[in-house]
Design a protein around this nucleic acid. Structure first.
Lengths: 220, 220
DNA sequence: CGCCTTTCGTTGTTTTTGCAACATCTTTTA
DNA sequence: TAAAAGATGTTGCAAAAACAACGAAAGGCG
């Protein structure tokens, strides 16, 4: 378990906590570790009373199957990352996704509902964990809200401009860099790469922006 | 302030708390009330150290202005609703939106960071408030994640099918109702209403689904 | 250095969407 | 109940996107 503690200290969830505090927390939250082979289901859509899971080693896919059984990969979670964290705070909500390992994986399950029960109240380490949880949820919320703004645009051009404009404002400069290559940007904006590439060049030819690799400059 | 307490008890944030507990909490969180005229800015994009705001009466728009000054309305918040709640948990993040009243509005500001300081630890009412906050953030997260899945689809047909399929699964029946009329559904999926209407009818003619008003049935 | 892989831009074709305008049916209300 | 307002479906057309296929440039590696 020693090696696990080292991993845990580096995660967003346990950030700022000493090994001893983490060990106490793990006990209080009824932590349990489980090892999975590649291709095993950790959770199935439709289940209830879900505990939060943290990937210690390996990786999982959070997937959604539609009415006809088509699979859609929503996210990939790697070491240190959480899954099912939203459901772990909500009662009377059935899990709408499934979680599937894509390689041999160790998972730590945490019953975070216990954080809100009287028994574990008042300890400073609980407070740190709660703060970390709120931070994690707020950050994710912000990321989703941002992406939503771009995806709500009707055309590729508008998606690009809203994304680039927001990135420019966030970095507070008209010359900025983005953390994507073309294919990744297209995936992020849910458009076709080549069509997006063509749109970018049109914007360049129209004198609206310049770019080179992942560096962009708004001209007007 | 008596009237405000009645409002507050009905909100998601203060749910499950007695008037007395709420009053104590308001003091501990440095609550302050402010009244705005129609068309006043409550927050401007770029500000830092943001307190969470709750609309007591009236309504506000959360808006975003792009590089060229075009305004985009992201959400409308009415009585009992929160704004800037994500930012109130995050340090070193500048506000990326502005908040603007669209009618005379009373706002309650809460410094929720104080929840995580030692002084107010250990009280049961704090725990309830934290639980409510986590619930609110998790619910919002779930809503955003769902919508993201639909908006990530490339075509109107796929947007419709992923939304309707998910709704069918969530209601656990192939005959289900949706909380939107056509225009609202089109807005939600960020597509044109008439084009969406045509797509729906194609799906009907292909024998994939039937519908009447906001009632839908998957056939296969 | 040459080979292989990746990234990016370009073009042409097919499909889909947005938009505008209008017909039909339903609901509201005066 | 008649008129008005709202919701839904339908059509034609122009614009845009998806898709496929390809070439050029850049980067990594034996």
């Amino acid at each position: 378990m020693q090696k696990n503690l080292e991993i845990l200290q580096k995660t967003k969830l346990f950030k700022g906590l000493e090994s001893a505090a983490i060990e106490t927390l793990l006990t209080n939250l009824g932590a349990s570790k489980k090892v999975y082979q590649r291709g095993e289901f950790i959770y199935h859509a439709g289940e209830q009373t879900i505990n939060m899971g943290m990937v210690l080693t390996g990786a999982v896919h959070v997937i959604k199957e539609d009415f006809w059984g088509n699979r859609d990969i929503l996210t990939e979670v790697v070491a240190g990352g959480l899954f099912a964290e939203n459901y772990s705070f909500l009662d009377n909500v059935l899990l709408e996704v499934s979680v599937l390992t894509i390689e041999p994986t160790e998972v730590l399950f945490l019953d975070v509902r216990r954080l809100m029960s009287d028994g574990v109240i008042g300890r400073n380490s609980n407070l740190v964990l709660i703060k970390n949880l709120l931070t994690i949820l707020a950050q994710k919320n912000l990321m989703l809200t941002r992406k939503m703004e771009y995806l709500s645009q009707r055309t590729t051009k508008d998606k690009l401009l809203s994304y680039l404009s927001a990135e420019s404002q966030r970095q507070n400069t008209s010359a900025f860099t983005i953390p994507f290559n073309r294919q990744q940007l297209a995936d992020y904006l849910a458009v076709d790469r080549s069509a997006m590439s063509a749109t970018l060049c049109k914007l360049r030819d129209a004198g609206i922006l310049e770019f080179n690799k992942n560096k962009f400059i708004f001209k007007k």
